[in-house]
Design a binder for these strands. Structure first.
Length: 761
RNA sequence: GGGCGAUUAGCUCAGUUGGUAGAGCAAUCCAUUUACACUGGAAAGGUCACAGGUUCGAGUCCUGUAUCGCCCACCA
């Protein structure tokens, strides 16, 4: 081939993703086709199809898991757009409250040696905002590089003005329904982060611990076991199983003793929560420092006695205990037990220790006055579209969550389908164990709780809340002396509103009417509880709808050896690196092929490289076909160029066979697209293009294209053009850049593949 | 303690309602400028974790076992 070539010059060189991708993305953006309101008429009139992007945290940069998420969602969106749906893919980012705050706190401490309290709330929040803005810009750039056909004009942030109004409205509405309440109970306290956290933000770590078996006093006949002797200063009861014959005679008895310098009053109670087989079968009840004991205390009306403060220091006990950290106090209590001759046994055991997900600190259960969402409380659902829950019916948030999701066995009428199905059971199991959700956090970054107090806020949990005048509303109350609650909301409170807060709620917008419920929620299986369940709860309660019809869960992207990618292992593959080296198309394909929904996938650089070669293969196939159509193939450059004729019918028997094979493939993959089996579609198209079209059909065509039979040549060229045209359409959702680039060259810019039709037979 | 998933070629994984085991990568041999070396062709490679069962027939269905991984609970 030479400079006289009749085909576009760029096909004379290998495909270069680097010089193509940003140009194509810009072209798409300018076309307006990412925005459903600016789509061509065919899509304008189509059924709505919507996905809201699970907002990445503004804590830094995107990783391969995000890249996989973007690839899968873009495939769904592009496929539906080509099919003629009015598609909306809505982008956004998440302020990620505690995650972002602790990240910035660490940075400031490292660089300036200052803590957040040294800077003050206002200055600290300014710093966080700056950091969040930078992260946001990085993330947006990465999303673009992946080729995401997402509607930037509707971009949202969980902490922006509109979302803030949504949060305040949600809080007020749920408060008025009686679902949000303020109460004092044992919560998970993160002493390092100095905040409460929810049950889901706890990570259990297996550690070695000592189990101590002892008596409180010689005056109490029952022996108990614990790994935390220091908390026993706060005990108010001994619990045994009601059927335990060993302790029948003691049930109901009360004792007053002095334990390590602290006067304690112990009542013996019977509760079925006690496991008679474990230890001595008797358990010391510490209502203030154990959630389970707190529950037990509620059942038996036991008093609460706090002996540990927010800084994990003892507030009771003798002089070697009081004021000490719990670790030291534990040793001191054990010493005291020994000196009194009360310690009977000391054994090594493995224990699961609750730690805070973000800070790694050991959780200290403490009684505190916090805001909660009641999941089991009955209320009247004002409006509902959810199957099995008519408007005005009496229900609970738990029931909303149970009714919304489909389950073959227990709830066949549920409208939300989870893919893969096996996660349905995981979901239901979690809901059945669900307790009230603690939503207040003692951190600064986030949505401030929309509650104002007239008098001084109650600090001590023992004081009664009625002392302060309380106002709950979307705006600050008028008049003097009101002070807003200093706490912020759990980040998942605002994330829970995501499908509708992004569409304009609480306003009754056209977007909300058109695109809600959203079609698909595509996210990682690791946040099914954090997010998926909370969205169903919030949406059901506030909008009376399900937030989405289908939940598609993807797995974790691991390294080539199946290990979790992490900084400490140094095995992180950066999506931007891969895009730069091999292109976004190759990166996308490598994240799709070889992994089904809900399964973890393995990614190696070789895999990405392989799919880069595939992009070039398509490029070369195009070169071959275009030069054949131009007459170059058979050395007759003066022959009239053959233009693609979609109506062409004069096939030979070979071409009819090829056509049938291609049509069958299209039927198959269209079915698989509907079943969300993208990995199969990607693989089948790869297989067809390389092994069939290139290696067999093209090779077999060479003698015909070089032969004398003009009719045969025309038929063959028509088939090749048809096959290429079809394959480009089918591959577009997977490899949008290279397919669009070829399409532009073939159609001289007269149409855009992004809005062309998905192939039909 | 409860639940879920995986186990198929050296590696990564497909295998649709049961009907002669499939692909990519790697390795082997051949081809050397071919639309494409980001290449083509050929051959090789498997007791489908194990043990039973159902069946004319099981990678696929049933029961059990083992190993690995994950999730939930948190027994003090």
């Amino acid at each position: 081939m030479n400079e006289k070539s009749l085909i576009p010059e760029k096909f004379l060189k290998p495909y270069n993703p680097g010089s193509t991708e940003s140009r194509i993305y810009e072209m798409w953006e300018k076309s307006g086709y990412f925005n459903p309101d600016k789509l061509p008429l065919r899509q304008q009139k189509g059924e709505p199809f919507s996905i809201v992007l699970p907002p990445p945290n503004v804590t830094g940069t995107l990783h391969m898991g995000h890249a996989a998420m973007l690839a899968i969602e873009d495939i769904m969106i592009r496929y539906k757009r080509m099919q003629g749906f009015k598609t909306l893919w809505l982008p956004g980012t998440d302020h990620a409250a505690i995650a972002t705050q602790s990240k910035v706190e660490k940075e400031i401490e490292k660089k300036e040696g200052k803590r957040r309290h040294d800077l003050g709330r206002e200055e600290f929040l300014k710093r966080v905002d700056t950091f969040a803005q930078e992260s946001h810009d990085t993330i947006v750039n990465q999303v673009r590089k992946m080729g995401a056909s997402i509607d930037w004009s509707r971009e949202a942030f969980t902490l922006d003005e509109k979302r803030s109004l949504a949060v305040r409205t949600a809080f007020k509405t749920m408060h008025d329904l009686g679902l949000i309440y303020r109460g004092s109970k044992v919560i998970n306290w993160d002493p390092k982060g100095q905040t409460t956290i929810s049950d889901d933000e706890i990570v259990y770590e297996t550690r070695k611990a000592k189990l101590y078996t002892f008596k409180y006093s010689k005056d109490i006949p029952i022996t108990i076991s614990t790994t935390r002797p220091e908390t026993k200063l706060g005990d108010t009861a001994i619990a045994v199983h009601p059927d335990d014959v060993r302790y029948q005679q003691y049930i109901g008895k009360e004792y007053d003793v002095v334990f390590a310098g602290e006067s304690i009053h112990i009542r013996v109670i019977a509760d079925t929560a006690v496991e008679p087989e474990f230890g001595t079968g008797a358990l010391g009840v510490t209502p203030a420092h154990s959630a389970i004991d707190w529950d037990m205390a509620q059942r038996h009306d036991l008093p609460l006695k706090q002996v540990i403060d927010e800084f994990t220091k003892m507030t009771a006990g003798n002089e070697s205990i009081k004021g000490k950290k719990v670790g030291e106090a534990r040793t001191a209590v054990v010493e005291w037990l020994k000196s009194e001759g009360l310690l009977e046994k000391e054994e090594d055991i493995e224990q699961n220790v609750a730690t805070a997900e973000r800070t790694g600190a050991v959780i200290e259960p403490l009684p505190k006055l916090q805001w909660f969402i009641a999941v089991n409380k009955k209320f009247t659902l004002p409006y509902s579209n959810i199957r099995g829950l008519p408007s005005g019916s009496e229900t609970t948030l738990k029931e909303i969550m149970l009714k919304a999701v489909k389950s073959e066995e227990t709830n066949p009428d549920g409208s939300i389908e989870i893919i893969p199905e096996r996660f349905e059971r995981v979901y239901f199991n979690w809901i059945n164990n669900l307790r009230d959700w603690c939503i207040s956090r003692q951190i600064w970054y986030g949505h401030r709780i929309p509650v104002w107090y007239k008098k001084e806020k109650t600090v001590n949990s023992k004081q009664k809340t009625e002392e302060a005048e309380i106002y709950v509303g979307t705006e600050a109350p008028t008049g003097e002396g009101w002070e807003q609650d200093s706490d912020t909301l759990d980040t998942w409170f605002s994330s829970g509103l995501w499908t509708f807060s992004t569409l304009g709620w609480p306003e009754k917008t056209i977007d909300l009417k058109t695109f809600h419920p959203t079609s698909v929620l595509e996210t990682g299986y690791d946040i099914i509880f954090f997010w998926v369940a909370r969205m169903i709860l919030m949406t059901g309660c506030l909008v009376g709808e399900v937030p989405f019809k289908t939940v598609y869960l993807h797995g974790l992207v691991r390294d080539g050896k199946g290990k979790k990618m992490s900084k400490s292992l140094g095995n992180i593959i950066d999506p931007l690196d891969m895009i730069e080296k091999y292109g976004a198309d190759a990166t996308r394909l490598s994240l799709i092929i070889g992994t089904g929904p809900g399964n973890d996938s393995k990614l190696s650089e070789d895999k990405v490289k392989g799919y880069k070669n595939f992009g070039n293969k398509i490029w070369n196939i195009t070169r071959f076909i275009l030069s054949s159509a131009a007459g170059e193939r058979y050395g007759l450059t003066s022959v009239e160029k053959i233009a693609y004729d979609p109506q062409f019918k004069d096939w030979t028997s070979a071409e009819s066979t090829y056509l049938k094979q291609l049509n069958d493939l299209i039927t198959e993959i269209t079915k698989e697209m509907e079943e969300y089996k993208f990995y199969l579609v990607g693989e089948k198209l790869y297989q067809y293009v390389w092994a069939e079209l290139a290696d067999k059909i093209l090779e077999e065509s060479k003698p015909i294209l070089n032969g004398d039979d003009a009719e045969a040549r025309t038929a063959r060229v028509q088939f090749l053009l048809h096959a290429l045209n079809t394959v480009l359409r089918a591959l577009h959702p997977f490899m949008p850049y290279v397919t669009e680039e070829i399409w532009q060259e073939m159609n001289t810019g007269k149409s855009m593949l992004i809005v062309e039709e998905w192939p039909k037979n």
